[in-house]
Design a protein around this nucleic acid. Structure first.
Lengths: 243, 243
DNA sequence: AAATTTTATAAGCAATCGCTTAGTATAAGC
DNA sequence: GCTTATACTAAGCGATTGCTTATAAAATTT
């Protein structure tokens, strides 16, 4: 389709570029979890403004619907300034996607406690996952819905990270099923259903609305426990999961 | 953002254009439900090829990621031929969106039986909704995820149709709750969760894979009945909802 | 069979695209 | 204090965009 082949021109020899020490730590590629911390606070630096602008523009109009001039204008910079910090527009999308994917994987790993009862383990995972999505709706939107604008290799890397996320949830579902606490026939289908239910939060939820992210997350914990046919579901409902 | 204002040129006086009698019945705007019937069979006519090509291109690369030349090439026509059938690229998207929105509303209305017990009523709605999404993943993808590429007025019309869909589901949920058969605290949140769960089917489901659309729909019926805390849920599980 | 309408094409227009170049101001290293 | 690297801008490059024009074959109406 619409060719994104860097305009097909011969790539001229590039000036050497600083390889690290910037706010995202691009040397060791990207520090996971930094997006959520870094983006809001770094609105004062040019690089931070570029990143937040890109996220907002991509979230609103999509990758292909946003021009580099849009991002630059939104960040109050010339469009050439963007190319001081990023080699291409595509790299901007890739870094946003990577940071988000790693951040969510890191968050899930931090809360995953295989020694807990499956229902509590799943509840913790969902609470973290939904909370994360609810707090960063725009960045999640970009990293989820602009996936196909990445190159094949970029998609491969991103998919690898996501399959680690999937593995965590799958392990929890299997554990619950094997212990007879979850009633699940097809674990893969159940995982897809659960995670797609959660991810859509980024499409409609307004972080500054009436319901705070934590309350929403609790609500979704209740929904998911019901979906897996968890016996503790009713108990959880009663003791304040919000359902 | 990226301006889509018909390139800002003065619109020259246009030749009069045929106002109806084509396959989509554009006279009375669009016939609901025709997309699903018409698109596959009409691959031989130029208009049909243009529509299916547009759906496929938009679904794969997004509205902004698809050029009119892409669509025309895909339909084996010159790019100017597109403008014989559609005034603008945007009109193409709008018609696809409208046809889908009306088609899904029509389908839901056809299966909605308020006199049935709430669980059965909801099951029928979900079965129809998911089945429809599973059978037309690409068109649903376009009409769902390219919403923001529509003009404000086009969005208004589309939203009006969708809120009728929402009203049907909401009515069913309230009925079930009021009769004490569904355990729902926040009906709006439950509806959003249910419908976003269903709609994401268009993102991952392959209609020609191992699982036929009907089986998937049954699976989702089971999930949704569990979500609403339906007492019949267990019974349904047993008698073959697939869970 | 003549007149008209519809459907299509090749060529091209202005606008916008991603990105580069040339040049400048500021800060850092020696 | 001189050099070097960085962060930025104005201007502009070729490619591609959505869409129009001029033209003509095919289909339909009369």
């Amino acid at each position: 389709m619409r060719s994104d082949k860097t305009t097909g021109r011969a790539a001229p020899p590039r000036r050497r570029r600083k390889e690290s020490s910037d706010i995202l730590g691009f040397a060791k590629e990207i520090d996971a979890g930094l997006l959520s911390i870094v983006f809001p606070e770094q609105k004062e630096t040019s690089l931070g403004r570029l990143l937040t602008s890109a996220v907002e523009c991509f979230a609103q109009n999509g990758y292909h619907g946003t021009s580099t001039r849009d991002i630059a204008r939104h960040a109050k910079l010339s469009s050439a300034a963007l190319y001081v910090h990023f080699k291409t527009k595509n790299e901007l999308l890739y870094k946003i996607t990577l940071v988000m994917a790693r951040s969510m994987l890191q968050d899930l790993r931090n809360v995953d406690k295989p020694e807990l009862p499956p229902a509590e383990r799943l509840a913790a995972l969902i609470r973290s996952y939904v909370g994360c999505i609810a707090r960063m709706t725009m960045a999640v939107r970009v990293s989820t819905f602009e996936f196909q604008a990445l190159t094949r290799e970029q998609r491969r890397v991103t998919t690898a990270i996501r399959s680690e996320v999937n593995a965590i949830v799958t392990a929890c579902l299997e554990q619950g099923r094997d212990r007879g606490q979850f009633r699940i026939v097809d674990v893969d289908l159940m995982r897809i259903a659960i995670m797609s239910l959660c991810i859509t939060v980024c499409q409609w939820y307004k972080p500054n609305g009436r319901m705070p992210p934590e309350e929403l997350a609790d609500h979704y914990v209740g929904l998911v426990l019901r979906m897996v046919g968890c016996q503790d579901g009713a108990a959880m409902d009663a003791k304040g999961a919000g359902l």
